[in-house]
C-alpha cells in the first residue's frame, strides 16, 4: 500500500467537505465561534488545532494497544494537554499579541471536541500514518470553516483584512458604515448557520428530516 493510496486520500480529503468536523459532525464549535472576530487569530487557531490533532492522533495511535480501556480518557487528556502546553508556550514566545487575543481559548484546545472525537473514533483503531493524515484532514477542515467565518466577520465588521484596510475610503464618503453587529459574538453563529445552509443545499444527502 502506497503512502497516499485511495483509502488514505479519502481519510485526508473527506473532512474538508463531506465529513467536515464543524458543520457536519458538530465538533469543536466553541472555539470556532469565539476566536473568529478577526482573520488573524482564526488562522493561528486553525494552525494550532491542526498541529495538536495530528500529533495527538499519532501518539495515541502508537499507544493504542497498551492503554487500558477504563482509563483511556484520562490518558488521552494528558497527551493532549501536554501538546497544548507546548503550543501555548510557542505562541507566547513568537506571537504574543495573537496569544493575548486568543486568551483562554488556546488552553481550551484541550477540550476541543474534535480532538477527543478523532482520538476515540479514529486513532484508537488505526495505524500512526493513517491517523496522522486523519488529524491533518480534520484540522484543515476545521481551519477552512474558521477562515471563512473570520474573513466575513472582519470584512463586514471592520472593513479590514488581516488588519489592512480593504474597503476604500470613497465608500465611507458615500455613507457606507461598517456593520458593528458582525464583530459581536452572536453573529458568528448566524454566519455558521448560513455556511451550513449553503453546504447542505449543495449536498442533499446531509439534510436532516
Amino acid at each position: 500500500m502506497g503512502l497516499l493510496s485511495g483509502k488514505n486520500k479519502e481519510v485526508l480529503v473527506g473532512p474538508l467537505s463531506k465529513n467536515n468536523p464543524v458543520i457536519v459532525q458538530m465538533l469543536g464549535i466553541c472555539s470556532a465561534l469565539a476566536v473568529t472576530s478577526k482573520l488573524e487569530p482564526s488562522i493561528v487557531m486553525a494552525l494550532s488545532v491542526t498541529a495538536v490533532v495530528a500529533f495527538a492522533n499519532v501518539i495515541i495511535s502508537l499507544l493504542r494497544n497498551t492503554i487500558p480501556n477504563r482509563i483511556r480518557i484520562i490518558v488521552q487528556l494528558v497527551v493532549v494537554a501536554a501538546l497544548v502546553t507546548i503550543v501555548s508556550e510557542v505562541l507566547k514566545a513568537f506571537a504574543y499579541d495573537v496569544n493575548k487575543q486568543l486568551s483562554v481559548f488556546v488552553g481550551l484546545i484541550i477540550t476541543n471536541c474534535i480532538l477527543m472525537g478523532r482520538l476515540e473514533a479514529f486513532a484508537l483503531g488505526n495505524g500512526p500514518w493513517e491517523s496522522f493524515l486523519d488529524g491533518i484532514g480534520n484540522g484543515l477542515g476545521y481551519g477552512i470553516i474558521l477562515v471563512i467565518i473570520g474573513f466575513f466577520r472582519e470584512l463586514l465588521g471592520s472593513g479590514t483584512l488581516l488588519g489592512f484596510q480593504v474597503i476604500p475610503q470613497a465608500f465611507y464618503d458615500f455613507g457606507y458604515v461598517n456593520n458593528g453587529l458582525m464583530i459581536l459574538p452572536p453573529m458568528a453563529l448566524i454566519v455558521v448557520a448560513v455556511i451550513i445552509w449553503v453546504h447542505r443545499s449543495r449536498n442533499k444527502d446531509l439534510q436532516e428530516n
Binding site: 458538530m26 459574538p185 452572536p186 458568528a188 453563529l189 448566524i190 448557520a193 445552509w197 453546504h199
Partner: peptide, 22 residues
C-alpha cells in the same frame, strides 16, 4: 427550509438568544 433543518436553525436560534442575553 430543508437545508436549514436541525443544526442550521439551532445555530440561528442560539444566535438570537445570544443577542437577547447581550
Amino acid at each position: 427550509p430543508k437545508p436549514l433543518k436541525g443544526l442550521g436553525i439551532t445555530f440561528i436560534i442560539t444566535g438570537l438568544m445570544g443577542i437577547g442575553f447581550m
